[in-house]
Design a protein around this nucleic acid. Structure first.
Lengths: 148, 148
DNA sequence: GTAACTGTAACTATCTTAGTGACAATTAGG
DNA sequence: CCTAATTGTCACTAAGATAGTTACAGTTAC
């Protein structure tokens, strides 16, 4: 599996932006919540910004806020933006063409892999940042939004 | 996501063993089909052997063969044996407990992640090495088994 | 006895990732 | 205009994972 946590961090950041709704959040503020370095957050917000999910402003009083409604941001969109393409890596070197198995295994596996991956992506496609936000607020058992 | 190709290689090896049905295959033979080093194959066969999927014999005339029917080996079993546990890595450091979002994000995400992973695993659970073998043989458009 | 195997340890090269410091550019506000 | 706050981005490091490789002792068939 892609051994990176960028999807997790991106969803965390977007959920936080949803919770503070409208008030711009600095990379430093988000980084404290995620418990990482602000540069890591800025890198991810950069990708989300180019895709139109967030708007970011430099300078004093700057920061990032959502550019779309939380209910319009699907987790699948975020997942793909974070560079997650193939769930199952193929052979590092192409298999032997001199073998019945080597000749066809990649064709067969790519069908299987894509079916499995689609099943997973279908679940992510049915969930939005709003769902995450609501579940967090439900767990907190209060309608207030005092994130930090 | 799993960043290693061991699952692919394991399925390749098992499919090859299914195709040559009964005739023991050496790690060198399998490695030529996969296009890798025999030690890489032996490492994987070692795991499959401990799990009872293959039987391996050392010495001259040795090699590996399936210990179960191809139809009794599910791809999910192989997937898990290859060390694939969590599809979606969480934060590298635990998020801040001082933040509403940081406090609950992992609880919420672990539910979402497990749902998505289960959907993927359900597909793998419905497929066996026999399915792979049959698809390969179908592509080869011949009932003969001359793998190399 | 010899040749053909496996199992496994040890090592290397390569890649990916997260994290970090540094600094120019931008902006708000006095 | 000056200052403080903030982003974007580059360059680097440390750590970890992976595939590949060599080597060699142990096992087996003939």
């Amino acid at each position: 599996m892609t051994k990176n946590s960028r999807f997790t961090v991106a969803v965390h950041a977007l959920a936080l932006l949803a919770i503070v709704r409208g008030k711009p959040a600095t990379s430093d503020y988000i980084a404290r919540s995620v418990n990482t370095n602000p540069v890591v957050i800025r890198r991810i917000l950069g990708v989300l910004g180019k895709a139109g999910l967030v708007e970011t402003h430099p300078g004093a009083g700057g920061g990032s806020e959502l550019a779309k409604k939380p209910s319009d941001i699907s987790l699948l969109e975020v997942y793909r933006l974070m560079g997650n393409v193939d769930l199952f890596p193929m052979h590092t070197q192409p298999p032997s063409e001199d073998c019945v198995c080597g000749r066809h295994i990649q064709t067969v596996l790519s069908g299987v892999f894509s079916e499995a991956q689609q099943a997973m992506e279908h679940v992510l496609d049915g969930l939005t940042i709003e769902d995450i936000e609501l579940q967090i607020e439900e767990l907190e058992e209060s309608g207030l939004c005092e994130p930090c």
